[in-house]
Design a protein around this nucleic acid. Structure first.
Lengths: 250, 250
DNA sequence: CGCGCCATTGACTCTGGTCAACGCTAGTGG
DNA sequence: CCACTAGCGTTGACCAGAGTCAATGGCGCG
């Protein structure tokens, strides 16, 4: 299973090896996702301040950022990669409640314990803030809190859309909505591409959409047979976006 | 279908008839749900201020507080009754994303348009704030924003639990989790009772749990046959809470 | 080369959906 | 006062979409 990320803190460097952090840290001023993230609320001065509160962390695929029910000692700003957020039932059934992309913030609720588990899907980089430090900083920066609240509102809206998907849509509609939604999110962060990259496994997709791996696979095959997509390794090329969107909207 | 609530504003009185508001307004200082609601973040002074910004509204069963996609000109603090929040698919399929109870806040996201529709289930009373006015007030009261954010975090957590329910649980588990969850919420607002009151229709329960009315009915019957519940008009008496909770947790 | 993992496909099952009948209750009007 | 109706909930019979179980294929890696 996923190893725990040993976030040992080298006292002098803001770069934390996490699982295996090869690259040095980019300065916040140069951050590619800055304007997409909560940090867009901050001016130069504040950016420097918050930079000093954070560590840049790398996470290898399948490594955990944090686990459900653990004391929430840190919050994260994802800058690169992809993270799956999930909950487990006692018998092992898993529901993925979201995939976090660059610009997404983990730990919005600022609660004492994590409500979900988070695992890197791909090699992931994130800025890590000790929760208490971060919460204190937020307390003196209302515009940052405002920004966090906007993010929470957006998350809530996505969650409600996902409830509609899980409660009322067919397998084909779920897959279509998933692909359309992911494409939109990737486009918003400047990663639009003819071929949609799907780094997560079929099992991940199934656990996100409330399906089984077999149904996901069959549905991809059907959409490919209908010339809506072309299934490629670790991705899909959307051949007929209008048709896919029509299926997605129900 | 649900009539639109004509929120005609009598210029002198803070009591808005809404659909049919028979009773006068209770002062915020006497508000029964004050400590449960976002208002708990406010001191006496602020309570008076916010009281002057709001109108007390009544909504008859089946009347709309607001509708999805409409411009969000108001936010609400529910003080009495029950509200269903739902989304519709183009073909009429409905997913209820939550039931709001006294103390709940509607319009957390403070966005330009409502993301869901809201309809009174029972006779409902709510404090109505013009969104712009409310947003301006929040901007100068960071501790109120903080409180709103806590509420948003809590909502998000509930939404994630609901995703697990919709994505991974059986019909019986859904019903059990619904009953246990509702009982807990009612207990938290001081409405605990041996017999759980279920003012919403079977169709509402079905649309909340991603089931059909027939499956809801059959599952209630099964739980009754198993002596876990006793089904009564507009409610259920929980005969075996331990068993129900065991089913609910999966 | 062969092992293991993941995805795909097929055959069959089953949970929950669909369709239809029926009953109960509340409201209405003769 | 009671027949009639409308709406909601329950129940039964049947159906279908997705799940389960199992076999196979493809690919990367030791």
């Amino acid at each position: 299973m996923a190893q725990a990320a040993t976030t040992s803190t080298p006292p002098t460097s803001p770069v934390v090896p996490g699982m295996a952090c090869q690259h040095g840290r980019a300065a916040c001023a140069d951050c590619k996702v800055r304007l997409l993230s909560v940090c867009a609320a901050l001016n130069e001065q504040e950016l420097a301040e918050i930079e000093s509160l954070s560590q840049s962390c790398c996470f290898a695929p399948r490594s955990a950022l944090f686990s459900q029910e653990q004391p929430a000692d840190a919050v994260f700003n994802v800058t690169e990669g992809m993270v799956r957020l999930y909950k487990l039932l006692p018998d092992g059934r898993r529901q993925i409640v979201g995939f976090a992309l660059p610009g997404d913030f983990l730990g919005l609720a600022l609660l004492d314990r994590y409500g979900v588990s988070a695992e890197a899907v791909t090699e992931t980089r994130a800025c890590r803030f000790p929760r208490k430090t971060f919460a204190e900083y937020v307390d003196e920066k209302p515009h940052l809190l405002r920004r966090l609240h906007e993010f929470a509102g957006h998350e809530l809206s996505l969650a409600q859309d996902q409830m509609v998907l899980l409660g009322r849509r067919s397998a084909e509609e779920r897959i279509a909505a998933f692909l359309v939604g992911l494409r939109e999110r990737l486009a918003r962060i400047g990663q639009s591409s003819v071929t949609l990259s799907l780094p997560m496994s079929r099992q991940d997709i199934a656990d996100f959409l409330g399906l089984t791996i077999e149904t996901v696979s069959r549905t991809f095959t059907k959409l490919a047979k209908d010339k809506v997509l072309l299934v490629v390794p670790d991705g899909a090329r959307i051949m007929n976006p209008e048709r896919l969107e029509a299926i997605a909207r129900g």
